[in-house]
Structures are given as structure tokens and as C-alpha cells.
Design a protein around this nucleic acid. Structure first.
Length: 504
RNA sequence: GGUCGGGUGGCCGAGUGGCUAGGCUGAGCUCUGCAAAAGCUCCUACAGCGGUUCGAAUCCGCUCUCGACCUCCA
């Protein structure tokens, strides 16, 4: 059996995963900025890294999964009016900053729950770690890699690059950018006189009087820069060097590059061994993002309340949609694609439900095994782990599971006899479907829950309809079926003579 | 302009040298009172042009084209 490997953005190649501490994994994923509601694009990293988390747990690792909440505002583009996003919107909505932050944090948690994402081990907030951030900045200043001007602190990228290139940690090591090129191509921006170089970034920013979010610091009243929170919190909870750092590809530069520089100065290490980046979700070929004005919020997606949407899509449909593509590929949103995922999910889930109900133990081992079919099943089942180990090829795993669906359905319909497959093969199939769909992919049943009384009524109605059919009273039987269908309940006559139903 | 990554059948999307990816859609058949579901079958594609090779979607070169990042970003 193969071993787990990841594509490491840092080395730009696939590498076998070996945890720093045996059997334990530390993983840090950049969380949401809670200044607004999460959209479809945001769902991708959190689902992707939920799969990473679940898979590592499945492999038996003890994982500490840290995902932060960015609740201290970041800056607008340098050179424009420096403005704290969170505080400016708070004025707009006439809310306390922390009230706003709480509101969107709650919404974020709601969405994560809808997606059936496991909760991280620690979910630290930026505002709760101002002290740690200040400590780290002081250390960087003491080491000579940051300078103070007008109550703000900037990281001296140029100096860092000169001194740390020799230590194998040049600025640009993660993103592949060459600092010298950057300096030449960065456009001239105004209000940058404070910084010694254009590539320098803020560690601490002096707060203008109108800023509501503000803290005391050795340099005056202000707020932390964008990148320092992740360095401070990952160091605090995972140590100076941990296993996995995850996030969206758009964070690779500058965010993660700056994290590396900050941590390299303070801890003398590139903070993480493996850097994993998920690709973007696009819409009409363009990245979904605020600046493109093409976002679909998660609440809109789930309710169908958006002009682009032809219908609502459930959280599991969205999850499945994301899993059907490799995490490093762009994924283009489209109603047709989502609908395909919705149907595909139902098909595979129905097969899984059937499979779970099969009573394998009662099957007698026999010599009527269809060896080629049996081998085909085993080959497919045994390929699953290899595909998952190969940089989490969830798309391939799902395709393989789909290959088994016709066989499962045929077992039910009797096209394939149970004793055509070895008992162990059936057991393995049952096990793998459960492990992958439920444990690793985190899919769950979305059938609307109905209570026993409804079930009893449906049983009764089905029985009445059966009586009508037996009497060849198809007018009555069709009336029952059609009206139930109109009410969202689909009856299916089974070959065995029984009836099953599905809420649609 | 710089850096990087793509272009796969009607749609979405795996796949790095030879073997059917898969899902959705469409067509036909079987089953069925009729449906639905399910099964079977079909529609067999790799942007273009060259090159390497016995053999290329896959490797190399060029061209066209789309996108991401370049200090707000998942």
C-alpha cells in the first residue's frame, strides 16, 4: 500500500508525508475574516482541509487542527485611505465592532455545521492574541528586522532577504517571486513615504482617531498588521515548526510569504513543513471574490435566493461538488454542474444505503463466485487508498465508488447474485463505502427527517394504493402516486412487490 | 510588464507514454398496467502546428487562448 503524499507548495512537488512527531500532526489553516458573510469561494478551503483533517484522523494520527478567526480588521490597499474594514462597516451598520464580528462568526459557524465540517481543535481569535502579536513584533524589532515610524511598525523585507537568503530562506521562497523583480515592477503608490521600501509590510499600524478597534502598544495606539496574527497564533499553539499549513492559493503571496519571514526571524524556522493550497472557485471563468462583484453567499446558495441560481443547493450537494474536483484545480460554478452533483450524490448515497442494509452474514460461501467480477470489485476497492494517498484525489475515489454502484444496484435487483461475490469482497465494499463517504468525506443524509406518525400514514397510503393496483384500479393508484409526488414524496414500485418512497 | 497555472466529448471533470475514468445531459432497449427507480447499449474527446518515440491527451518547441497572483482576497 502506498503512503500519503501531498503536493507541497514550498518545494513545488509531491512529497511523502512524514509527521515531525510520530503519530501526531499539527495543522494550521487560515480561517475567515469575519467582517462579512462567507461565500461559496470560502467554503472550499474549509471543506478541503476538513477532508485533510478527517483523513489524518482516519490514518490514526492525533491531530491538533488550529483554524483562526480574523476579527481584527485588516487594511485596505496601501496608498489608499488606510481604513479598518471591520470598523468602517460597523459604523455603516451602526453596530459595535465586536457585535459585528460576533454576528459573522456565528454565521460562519452555522455554515461550517451545515457542511458537516468537524470543529477545529483550537479556534483562536486575533483580538484574543494581541499580547502575543506585540511580543512577536518586539522580537522582530530587537533583531533588527523591523523599524518604527510614526507609531507604526514595518518589516524590513530588503534586509531580511539579504540576510536570510544565505540561510536558505529568501523572501519569495514560497511564492517563487524574486524580490528584485518585485521592486522594479511594483507600481508607485502614494502615502508610502513611511516605508523604507515598497515591499515592506506592516506589523503594527498606528490607529487614526476614527478607528474603533484599537489597542495600546509600545508604539502607541494601533492595531496589528495583517500577517502577524497567524505567525503568533501558530507558534503559540503548534510550536516553532509544525507539519501542515493550509489556505487558499490567493494567500500564498503575500500572506504566507510574510508569515514565513516573520517566523524565520523569531523562530529561525520556516514555520511549516508542508504548505497546502487549494485552488479558487470561479464563476464564468473568473475567481469568485468581492472585488469582482460575483459572489454567491452560502446562505443564498442554500436558499436559492440569488439571481444567478436556478434553484437551491443543499450543503451536501455543495460539499460533493467540491469533492468531485481535485483541490488544486480551479472549479467553475454553474447551475448545471451543481445539479449534476445533486443527482450524483443521490445516486451514490442511495447505493450506499442499500449496501448497508445487505445482510452479508446470511450469504453462504459458495463456489459460484464470478471471479472476474469479484476481481474487478477488489481492484477498484483496493485502488481507493492509493488515490486518496496521492495528494487527496477525492475525484478519483468518487469515480471508483461510482463504478461499483451498478453492481450494488444489480445485487438488489437480482441481476447479480450475492454469491457471485466473495463474502470478504462484500464486507470490504460495505466497509469502504462507509469509511470514505461518511468518515473521510463527511457526507451525511439530508433526507428530511420525518417522524413515526408520518411513516405510519405513508405505510397506510401505500397499502391502499397497493390494494387499488391489485384490483387494476389504476385511476386510484395513479392519483395517489401523482398527488404524493406533487407534495414532494416519490413512490417507487419495487420488483419484489414492495413500495419505497423518497422525499424530494 | 513580471511570476505561475490551465485549455479534455453537449456540460462538469479525473488522468503524465500503450489499457473503458467518472458524474450529469441526450438517444435506444429491458423490466413495468403505466411511471419512477434500476440494468444494458450508444454518442469515444483531449486548443492548433511541428518534433521526440514502435506508440503522445500525457514528453519537447512554437502559436493561439483563458485565468490566478504581483502587498484587500479562501
Amino acid at each position: 500500500m502506498s503512503s500519503l503524499s501531498f503536493y507541497n507548495s514550498l518545494t513545488r512537488k509531491k512529497e511523502e508525508f512524514k509527521s515531525i512527531t510520530p503519530n501526531r500532526v499539527g495543522m494550521y489553516v487560515c480561517g475567515p475574516t469575519v467582517s462579512g458573510e462567507s461565500h461559496l469561494g470560502h467554503a472550499r478551503p474549509f471543506i478541503t482541509f476538513d477532508i485533510v483533517y478527517r483523513y489524518l484522523l482516519h490514518l490514526g494520527y492525533q491531530v491538533r487542527y488550529v483554524r483562526n478567526i480574523t476579527d481584527a480588521g485588516h487594511f485596505e490597499e496601501e496608498g489608499r485611505e488606510s481604513e479598518d474594514k471591520i470598523s468602517s462597516k460597523a459604523i455603516l451598520e451602526k453596530l459595535e465592532p465586536m457585535e459585528l464580528v460576533q454576528k459573522y462568526t456565528n454565521k460562519f459557524h452555522w455554515a461550517m455545521k451545515e457542511f458537516n465540517n468537524l470543529e477545529p481543535s483550537i479556534e483562536p481569535t486575533a483580538t484574543g492574541h494581541i499580547v502575543e502579536q506585540i511580543d512577536m513584533i518586539e522580537k522582530i524589532i530587537a533583531d533588527g528586522f523591523a523599524y518604527v515610524i510614526n507609531g507604526s511598525v514595518y518589516f524590513d523585507v530588503d534586509k531580511y532577504h539579504r540576510e536570510f537568503s544565505a540561510k536558505g530562506m529568501p523572501y519569495g521562497i514560497l511564492s517563487g517571486r524574486v524580490l528584485e523583480d518585485q521592486l522594479e515592477t511594483t507600481r508607485d503608490l502614494e502615502s508610502q513615504e513611511e516605508k523604507r521600501n515598497k515591499s515592506d509590510f506592516a506589523l503594527w499600524k498606528n490607529a487614526a482617531p476614527e478607528h474603533i478597534m484599537r489597542w495600546n502598544s509600545p508604539w502607541g495606539i494601533g492595531f496589528p498588521g495583517w500577517h502577524i496574527e497567524c505567525s503568533a497564533m501558530s507558534t503559540k499553539y503548534l510550536g516553532q515548526e509544525f507539519d501542515i499549513h493550509g489556505g487558499g492559493m490567493d494567500l500564498q503571496f503575500p500572506h504566507h510569504e510574510c508569515e514565513i519571514a516573520q517566523s524565520a526571524v523569531c523562530n529561525h524556522h520556516i514555520p511549516a513543513k508542508y504548505w497546502l493550497h487549494n485552488n479558487m472557485i470561479t464563476i464564468n471563468g473568473r475567481k469568485m471574490g468581492k472585488s469582482y462583484n460575483n459572489v454567491i453567499k452560502l446562505s443564498e446558495l442554500f436558499s436559492g435566493n440569488h439571481e444567478i441560481l436556478t434553484q437551491a443547493y443543499s450543503p451536501m450537494t455543495v460539499r460533493f461538488f467540491i469533492l468531485q474536483t481535485h483541490y488544486r484545480s480551479t472549479l467553475d460554478f454553474g447551475n448545471e454542474s451543481l445539479q449534476a452533483s445533486e443527482k450524483g450524490l443521490r445516486r451514490i448515497w442511495d447505493a450506499f444505503q442499500l449496501l448497508s442494509k445487505f445482510n452479508i452474514e446470511s450469504q453462504q460461501s459458495s463456489d459460484s463466485i464470478d471471479t472476474s467480477l469479484n476481481k474487478h470489485c477488489l481492484d477498484v476497492l483496493n485502488s481507493l487508498d492509493d488515490d486518496m494517498n496521492d495528494d487527496l484525489n477525492t475525484a478519483k475515489v468518487l469515480a471508483s465508488l461510482f463504478e461499483l454502484v451498478p453492481i450494488i444496484n444489480s445485487l438488489k435487483d437480482g441481476h447479480v447474485k450475492f454469491d457471485a461475490l466473495a463474502k470478504d469482497t462484500l464486507k470490504l465494499m460495505k466497509d469502504k463505502f462507509k469509511v470514505y463517504l461518511v468518515d473521510i468525506f463527511g457526507l451525511q443524509d439530508e433526507q428530511k427527517q420525518h417522524d413515526d406518525k408520518i411513516s405510519a400514514i405513508l405505510h397506510l397510503i401505500a397499502e391502499i394504493r397497493k390494494d387499488a393496483r391489485d384490483k387494476k384500479d389504476f385511476i386510484t393508484s395513479d392519483k395517489i402516486r401523482n398527488q404524493l409526488l406533487a407534495a414532494g414524496i416519490q413512490l417507487k414500485d419495487e420488483k419484489s412487490g414492495g413500495v419505497s418512497w423518497e422525499f424530494i
